[in-house]
C-alpha cells in the first residue's frame, strides 16, 4: 500500500489491511499524544509528588472479588461438563451465597431458592418453550 498524493494503491489481496493500518496509525499517534499530555502534567506539578497509582480501591473485598472471578471462569467449562441445569444451579447457589456474605440458614435458603428458581425458569422457558440452543 503506497499513498501518493491523494491516491492509494489498493489491491484485492490487501483489502483487509487498508483500514487496520490507518487505525493502528491513529492509535499510535493518540498514544503518543496521551503520553505527552501526561508528561507535561507531571512537569507542571514537579514539586508535588504524584499520587501513586492504585489499582484496587481502598479496603477492597478480596474474597468476593477473586471468588467471583474464579466462579465466572469455572462456569463455562462446568456447562460443557455437567450440562446446563446442574452447572447453573450449582453456580447460582455459590455466587448468591458468596454475595450474601454470610453462611446461615436464611442465606442458604435464599440461595437455594434463587438458584433453583432462576435456573429452572431459564431452562424451561428458553430451552424448552422457545427451543433456544442452551449451553
Amino acid at each position: 500500500m503506497t499513498i501518493a498524493f491523494f491516491t492509494m494503491d489498493i489491491s484485492f489481496n490487501e483489502y483487509h489491511l487498508i483500514f487496520p493500518r490507518i487505525i493502528i496509525g491513529a492509535l499510535i499517534i493518540l498514544a503518543v499524544a496521551l503520553l505527552l499530555q501526561k508528561g507535561i502534567q507531571l512537569l507542571k506539578r514537579k514539586e508535588k509528588r504524584p499520587k501513586p497509582f492504585r489499582f484496587f480501591s481502598e479496603n477492597y473485598d478480596a474474597k468476593k472479588f477473586y471468588a467471583t472471578l474464579v466462579l465466572l471462569v469455572l462456569y463455562p467449562p462446568a456447562l460443557s461438563l455437567f450440562g446446563f441445569l446442574p452447572a447453573s444451579i450449582l453456580f447460582m447457589f455459590l455466587i448468591t451465597i458468596l454475595y450474601a456474605g454470610q453462611f446461615n440458614k436464611k442465606t442458604i435458603i435464599v440461595s437455594i431458592s434463587n438458584s433453583l428458581a432462576s435456573s429452572i425458569a431459564v431452562w424451561y422457558v428458553f430451552g424448552q418453550l422457545f427451543d433456544i440452543t442452551l449451553p
Binding site: P76, F91, T96, A100, G101, T133
Partner: peptide, 26 residues
C-alpha cells in the same frame, strides 16, 4: 446478592444464544 447472580445467568445464556449456540461468545 439476588439480582446480580440472575443477571450473570441471563448474560451467559444470552451470549451463548446470540449466534445460536456458540460457547466462545460466553
Amino acid at each position: 446478592y439476588i439480582i446480580f447472580p440472575i443477571i450473570v445467568l441471563m448474560c451467559v445464556v444470552g451470549s451463548y444464544a446470540i449466534n445460536s449456540g456458540i460457547m466462545f461468545d460466553v
